[in-house]
Amino acid sequence: MSEAVLSVQDLRTQFKTRTGMLNAVDGVSFEVGRGRILGLVGESGSGKSVTGYSILGLIEPPGLIAGGEVLLNGRDITRLKGDELRRVRGAQIAMVFQDPMMTLNPVLKIGTQMIAAVRAHDRVSRRTAWERARDALAKVGIPSPEERLDAYPHQLSGGMRQRVAIAIALLHRPAVIIADEPTTALDVSIQGQILAEVRRLADETGTAFVWVTHDLAVVSSLADDICVMYAGRIVETGAAADVIASPRHPYTAGLLASVPAEHEPGERLPQVPGSTPSLSDLPPGCAFAPRCFKAGPACTTTPPIQKFEDGRTALCHYPIESNSCQPLSSTSTTYRSAS
């Protein structure tokens, strides 16, 4: 097992609202190893994007990081400030945002924005920066990149913009890229290309990815490992193939059951029966209890993290047992996905 490039430990992010503190990210822990792809899955509002922002220190008031560590190659970046933090962002860890329509400034040319991104970390001439931007666009499959650099965001389709954002994230070959549903705006064939490119990148350059998505098909074909998130917590972790083949947490099982057998790639994940709870009034104990088919008397108390012998974990009192694996213990806190 090699060192994890990114290790998130007990991360807690809160938002101050009129009705009180919301725990949008509530004790999230995971690790990603070099060249690994971790799929982060969960319904809308489960805290996937906030987790990504928190890792990069991009939470603005009324939000705040209430606790936890984000170790990037062993260094806790939640403690960095000012220029130290700036030098990490984009260079060692990058993020692709969820909404491609909003992530580029509408009044600046793509080229201007990309040149700024290059020169944020490398003291190179505008000309060199421009060339690097052009090459980065070509690499994510954007046709005639010179022209695109001269275009404004509104002249590009959503999928094109998303690829620009991906190209920007790749500019400095960061150790970790957090990709927040980066392929939802793309059509299926482009999505396939991007996924293949990401897989190749992870394998060849050792870039680690946290791939946020609703799309279980993407996770099963792309990710090495999975974290399933519910109401700000990680409820199940494990190797992607194992989790999809035999989910341990009732929520994961629900997610998988609601996917039709002839599920098309790119299709959005259908809802699990019931609705996503509001973070402001979660039930005591297990947040999933009102929707859970396995809920029992113990579920009004906080569930333990159950660890199984195949390295998987589930945050549940009554995890679904498969014939081969029994829970080992209920003490471990961190799931390791480092290889």
Binding site: G90, A94, F97, A120
Partner: peptide, 21 residues
């Protein structure tokens, strides 16, 4: 805006964020 957050995620300095965006 999201694009300022994205600019910060790229490591742009605050001066650049204000001066450019």
């Amino acid at each position: 805006s999201d694009y300022v957050r994205f600019a910060r995620a790229q490591g742009l300095s605050e001066g650049k964020v204000v001066g450019l965006h």
